[in-house]
């Protein structure tokens, strides 16, 4: 009963956040200066009648709240709207999202494998070369902006050494994705390994570990079964949240490596004043983001009995 009430409240909060975010994005896209029809036409002169027909077609002369309501109504019927160039936004998204999903999952797997692995090794061998290397990586990841890392690695591994494709997705997975995914993963990887290391160090010194050890269990079993399981909570919470961000696509990385993903589409649409596309993508991203946050809560409850009991 209490759990049902809590989830009800949680979902109510999500609905408010969803409405608020979509409304602000809508305002930012349609209320700020810049005439979308003029931007769409580019340098070609448009006759008055064409302009007014276009404005009528996209309801640009309606008051803003009316436009937003129309948009929401369409949304509940599964319609993400149509771009000014006449393509359904849902179709544009469906074309671009696979690239972003593959990129995000590649980066995510790198974060899990290397982040958790490095964190565990660093915690077990404190003061070792790997431990210090991890600290250096954390420092690097926190101070070198992702676009600098992207540009430098693209130029070095792609152009200078020629090991990996410089840009585009023509070489398919994994070749085309290794470099951009690694650049994206560096930041999350260092966070995951730091969280894992911290939790492991704390747990290795906990009383219950001493008890288990006193019972005569082997070190492998202690670390593998008890310490690691209990230490997974902070890292897995971070990983789940991060997946939400990753699936939103990286405007910067997709731009640098010219990957035709959601982030790239979003950036191009913003530059081209393609309001409907921008709002549509932003809405889809927010839904993904909110769903992951629910997932994080569920995961948290699953891993940590204290949270479950509230």
């Amino acid at each position: 009963m209490a759990a049902a009430a809590r989830w009800g409240k949680r979902l109510g909060g999500l609905a408010i956040v969803f409405l608020g975010v979509t409304f602000i994005i809508y305002l930012a896209v349609f209320a700020l200066p810049g005439d979308p029809i003029r931007a769409f036409a580019g340098d070609r002169p448009l006759s008055e009648s064409v302009v007014s027909a276009l404005r009528a077609k996209y309801h640009l002369d309606d008051p803003l709240w009316r436009q937003y309501l129309d948009y929401l109504l369409g949304l509940f019927q599964g319609d993400l709207g149509q771009s000014f160039s006449g393509r359904p936004v849902a179709e544009q998204l469906a074309n671009r999202w696979p690239v972003t999903v593959v990129l995000a999952l590649t980066a995510w797997v790198l974060e899990i494998v290397f982040g958790l692995g490095l964190g565990v090794v660093a915690a077990l061998k404190r003061g070792s070369l790997i431990d210090h290397g991890l600290l250096a990586l954390t420092v690097l990841a926190s101070c070198v902006p992702v676009f600098v890392l992207g540009v430098l690695s693209q130029q070095f591994f792609g152009v200078e050494l020629g090991w990996l494709p410089v840009a585009g997705v023509r070489d398919g997975w994994p070749l085309s994705y290794i470099l951009p995914a690694s650049v994206i993963a560096v930041f999350g990887l260092s966070a995951v390994s730091r969280l894992m290391r911290g939790a492991m160090v704390e747990n290795l010194e906990a009383d219950y570990v001493r008890t288990v050890r006193a019972h005569g269990f082997g070190e492998g079993r202690i670390v593998g079964l008890h310490v690691m399981r209990n230490s997974l909570i902070p890292a897995s919470t971070y990983l789940a949240t991060d997946l939400g961000y990753l699936l939103g696509g990286s405007v910067i990385i997709e731009g640098i490596f010219n990957l035709p993903g959601v982030g790239n589409l979003l950036f191009d649409s913003i530059r081209a004043h393609e309001g409907p596309t921008v709002v549509g993508i932003a809405t889809a991203l927010i839904v993904v983001f909110l769903l992951t946050s629910v997932l994080v809560d569920a995961l948290h409850a699953l891993l940590d009995p204290r949270v479950r009991r509230g």
Binding site: V17, A28, V29, G248, V251
Partner: peptide
């Protein structure tokens, strides 16, 4: 709820 950078891009794009 929405990425900081995305919001900044949308707004900055309409500022001349």
């Amino acid at each position: 709820g929405f990425p900081f950078l995305l919001a900044a891009i949308v707004v900055l794009n309409s500022i001349g």
